[in-house]
Design a protein around this nucleic acid. Structure first.
Lengths: 149, 149, 149, 149
DNA sequence: TTTT
DNA sequence: TTTT
């Protein structure tokens, strides 16, 4: 059966995006994202717990990430879990999990405004008119090549 | 700022889809979806609570809904909240909320198998390669016209 | 069958919370939340579309909302769709949809820091068995006595 | 700042739950969940891609999983990403990611009905203040005594 | 008006 | 390695 594999994150980048431009116009950006939760333990002390996520962004979104995101940027991310498996030098099976980003939104527009030609409005990675079933307006569907600013 | 407006539902259709074919190849399907939660009240009695949702599906997804969904179908839905506002005959401002479906997945393939040429595999409304940032394989992006079966 | 009814929003409050303290230590806060999406239309013009959501927050979370949220606050919200139905004066069946908030997170802590004793850490509302998957009435949460700061 | 770390999955168990009863009334169940997506490649061939997820369920939910889930069960899951890190024998830093389950819903109740005393109503796991937004240790949930049936 |  |  068809299933669902969805990840929703809101956090800050621990480093600038690492971007590789591949052959055939393909681009991939790797991001490190921290999501921090705070809670009180049973003694009433505040505890902070941070999880680090490896994000992978492709093509049009990667170009946007390269241009507008940097260390510290706060983003909302939608994606899916994707594992890579391989054998290491000792012949052990290894597995690494990444979040394949389907879209992201810059939440903290202060970052977008500093030292760049970025817009005052932050960016929302948009769903395409194809899968939004968007009957409103017939948006063109080439957002991948069509930076939103 | 760019925001997020996302709805995730899992439930059953209360009726067959109502489909209208509009000019210019546009299609809209309206669905009634029930999501039922059960819990125990403070007396330990099981209580069942059903919420009914008005869903709106467009174009390619609407055609799939028309073909494969019917009363009782169990589906997983992703969409967004969308309100229509108007004035009624008394001049009162009125507002109606619908869920604009962005994709859906048939969960209960039993329905798909009964009395139809439906596939044994249920359908997953797929994100487009544009917004999945899909670097895997370069899927063509015309799913809207490209029924998945 | 048990279903799923989940809403995820990220946006800004259009007004200060409206809070009512009810009998029996119950508190309800009503919030107006705007989620804005921007996209380019077929002519390449940026279009901005805002959806307004009516949120309902109860008890412990309502007290936190009262204390820390105000007009303009940016929050991430998790909740469920909940409809109220009634008959109006003309005898018409009426229905109003609200988002019952299950937890929220302050995203823009700049708001929290202005003119209040708010913490330097923003708050993440936590789910509880009481306010999650819950019937309307009869919440007897202890969140009220357990503010997270 | 407080962040968001949320995972939503819908899929089938690849094996029966592995349950360990720990000291102090604690229980943990490990589940293997497959989420399958299907799409057409550029040649129009249907491609099926399955991702396997390691789920970790604690205490009350673990007991429910033990009792009602088995190989093949279809479930909807809500949880968060959680990584364990350690050094292997070669002194390499290793990391393993699991999904900490916050609640789950049995979607295909046919499984629940076969060869067991399972209820005709399927179960929706409810969030609790204990297992939500929670640190690892020190759960002292009372879910164990409060099975929802 | 669904489902179990 | 982020953020407040």
């Amino acid at each position: 059966m068809a299933g669902v594999n969805k990840v929703i994150l809101l956090g800050n980048l621990g480093a600038d995006p690492e971007v590789r431009h591949l052959e055939g116009d393909k681009v991939v950006a790797n991001l490190r994202l921290a999501t921090t939760e705070t809670y009180k333990d049973r003694n009433g002390n505040r505890v902070e717990n941070t999880e680090w996520h490896d994000l992978e962004v492709w093509d049009g979104l990667a170009r946007i990430a390269e241009q507008y995101l940097k260390k510290g940027s706060k983003i909302f991310v939608e994606g899916k879990i994707k594992s890579d498996t391989w054998q290491d030098e000792q012949g052990n099976n290894r597995k690494k999990i990444r979040i394949r980003v389907q879209n992201f939104t810059m939440v903290d527009s202060r970052n977008a405004d500093q030292g760049t030609s970025a817009p005052s409005q932050s960016y929302t990675g948009q769903s395409s008119p194809v899968n939004t079933g968007n009957g409103d307006s017939g948006l063109d569907s080439d957002e991948a090549d069509d930076l939103p600013f």
